[in-house]
Design a protein around this nucleic acid. Structure first.
Lengths: 136, 136
DNA sequence: CATACATTTGCAACAATGTATCAGTTGAGC
DNA sequence: GCTCAACTGATACATTGTTGCAAATGTATG
């Protein structure tokens, strides 16, 4: 699906910044930060607009937000091909040296049984350490 | 163990801010943020000193840092009674409404087998949602 | 106890990641 | 093409840090 279709499918208005952001995330196929996206897209939009767009896209279930560390937040496209809201079910690895965030697709997150009354909205598993490149 | 003993035991110099921070964490027995600690301790030290102290105490294995969200970081004392460095092995629940961070001691984190070459330093599992108080 | 020297602290400035307000612009439906 | 709600840009501000440097403090030694 192209950006316009994704937005229409999730009943979100089509605007220039939103299309550009989705397009960039599709092309890179890896979690990107605000800085990464700015490097790719330049001054296409204001920072305020960026954050509001990300909020809108997250609420709509189009993207997912990963807090790699308190000073590094990255965004990834959800799997929109199958038409349902797809929450990541795998572990994320964050290299403290090269600051890369890697999806460990093969490491699935177990389902946790919360006590009565608690409602889960998202569940993130972040392993921090050194990636194979930096651990030499 | 009292704060001075903990610092000596980990070969970290005893200073006023460090003792005060450990004391506050011991008394509260729950994860505290910079703001929480400032409310407790007032202007006992500068913000820069706080962050440097937390870095030192984390490196020494005396405390552990929990990234509840990119805008909320909390700190907890490790279990120093048994003389070894104790990494939390349980899930943390973060209530998006009341901003409370709860240790789910009964939910243990599984060990993940990383690919060759990767080195794990910390592993955090954060479930975000609504706590039993706010989910009504 | 006094001195020496490395460690730690306080202050000021700066950086990244957001949020709030409000006027002005744009998009979608008719 | 019009209309009006929704979105955007600009400015200001909040939180969570980090960096550099001079001054203060802690620990080891005489």
């Amino acid at each position: 699906m192209n950006p316009s279709e994704i937005l229409f499918h999730h009943q979100v208005k089509k605007t220039t910044p939103r299309v550009a952001i989705i397009q960039a995330l599709q092309q890179r196929c890896t979690p990107l930060s605000e800085g990464d996206l700015k490097d790719l897209l330049g001054d296409l939009y204001d920072r305020t607009t960026f954050y509001r767009s990300m909020q809108t896209l997250t609420d709509a279930g189009i993207i997912h937000r990963i807090v790699a560390d308190n000073v590094l937040v990255k965004y990834v496209l959800n799997d929109c091909e199958h038409g349902h809201h797809h929450q990541p079910d795998h572990v994320h690895f964050y290299c403290q040296q090269c600051k890369d965030l890697i999806c460990m697709e093969e490491l699935k997150v177990q389902a946790y049984q919360l006590p009565d009354g608690f409602k889960e909205q998202t569940c993130d598993v972040i392993i921090r350490g050194l990636c194979s490149n930096c651990n030499k």
